[in-house]
Computed example of a mutant assay.
Amino acid sequence: MDAPLSRSAATTPPATVLAWDLPTRIAKWLLAVLVGLAFASRYCGDGALVWHQWNGLAILVVLVFRVLWGLVGGSTARFSRFLRGPGAVLSYGVAMLRGRPPHFLGHNPAGGWMVIALLGVVGAQALTGLFTTDDIAVYAPLTNVVSDETMARASAWHQQIYPILLLLLGLHVAANLAHSFLGSDNLIAAMITGRKPRGTFADRDPATPGSVARAVGCLVVAIATVFGGIALAGGNPFP
């Protein structure tokens, strides 16, 4: 029979703590894959445009889910937890330049606003895509409820947002790689496993996960919002 654990061994805290809950991580990686597929389908000829539209609809569902989860999800997923004022962002930037940035369990002040910027720009790209057409065979879900002028304007915005999105994605990837390989925070590993090594963090430790039922509810509401909203507007939610 194995010897009983000593009191000190039984009470030793785990080496890692929860940083991000599972729904947050799934939404992040799913959005990354969908955006990548949307970019790829954009260059695969006219036959791929229908898949490009389905990618856009799926992106909108994930975005709406992430906004809802940012209100009711796990502690580090909530916007109220990681969105801080300009002073906090400036202080964090100065600390970074001095090589002594504080460690955050969730998003740091600069990273939190990068999340919002990415959600906003990806959302704008997907929303303008609802009104675009190739003028030949493929019409987006809401082209039948707007004028030709509106379609042309939306198509122009859809193209103009594209390089802005690429720039933000490049900055986001570069920042994560720098933190992971040059700093003390392996953000890429943490966003995969959901955990970080135990330490002293500037935000609360450990994170609290959101409930599965709440995540499923947010997903259902997100799907209904995207497809139901298009249908209620008089569009075609199924390309």
Rank of each mutant, 00 (worst) to 15 (best):
L166S: 08
A231K: 08
L68R: 01
T208W: 07
G47Q: 07
G74K: 09
P197D: 08
V220S: 06
S80P: 02
L22A: 15
G99D: 11
W113P: 04
A213P: 01
A124K: 05
L232I: 10
P86L: 12
G183E: 10
V94W: 10
P209N: 12
Q125N: 06
S8F: 03
D134L: 08
S80G: 15
D135H: 14
N144H: 07
V216K: 03
G45C: 04
V220F: 02
P86A: 10
R198G: 05
G73V: 05
V221K: 02
D203T: 05
G129N: 03
V35R: 03
L22E: 01
V17Y: 11
T24E: 04
A124G: 12
D2N: 13
I136Y: 05
L30I: 00
A9M: 10
G199N: 03
A213L: 14
Q53T: 13
L60K: 02
A32Y: 08
L177M: 08
P163S: 06
I188A: 08
Q125H: 03
L49T: 07
L232S: 11
S147R: 06
T208N: 06
H52N: 07
L83P: 01
V121D: 02
A213N: 01
I59M: 05
V146W: 04
A178G: 05
P4H: 10
A48F: 01
V138F: 00
V146G: 00
R66F: 09
W29L: 09
Q53L: 06
L97F: 14
I136W: 02
V212E: 06
R84F: 12
R153S: 12
G45M: 01
A207G: 07
A202P: 07
V67F: 11
M151T: 15
L22V: 14
A3M: 10
P23D: 06
L182T: 14
I192M: 12
V212T: 14
G93F: 08
S91M: 09
A32T: 14
N108G: 13
T11H: 14
A152N: 07
I136L: 11
L171N: 10
L97R: 15
W69I: 11
L34M: 13
V94F: 09
P197V: 04
A32Q: 05
V220A: 15
K196Q: 13
F39M: 12
F82I: 08
A58D: 00
G210E: 11
W113F: 10
R98Q: 15
V226S: 05
N236D: 14
L30P: 02
F201I: 14
F227Q: 00
P13I: 07
P239L: 06
W54V: 09
D134W: 01
H158D: 00
G123V: 05
R78E: 06
L34P: 01
S184N: 09
T132L: 01
G56A: 00
D205G: 05
R204I: 13
R25I: 09
L30W: 05
I164H: 06
W69T: 11
R78A: 11
A126V: 04
H158T: 01
W113V: 15
F65H: 02
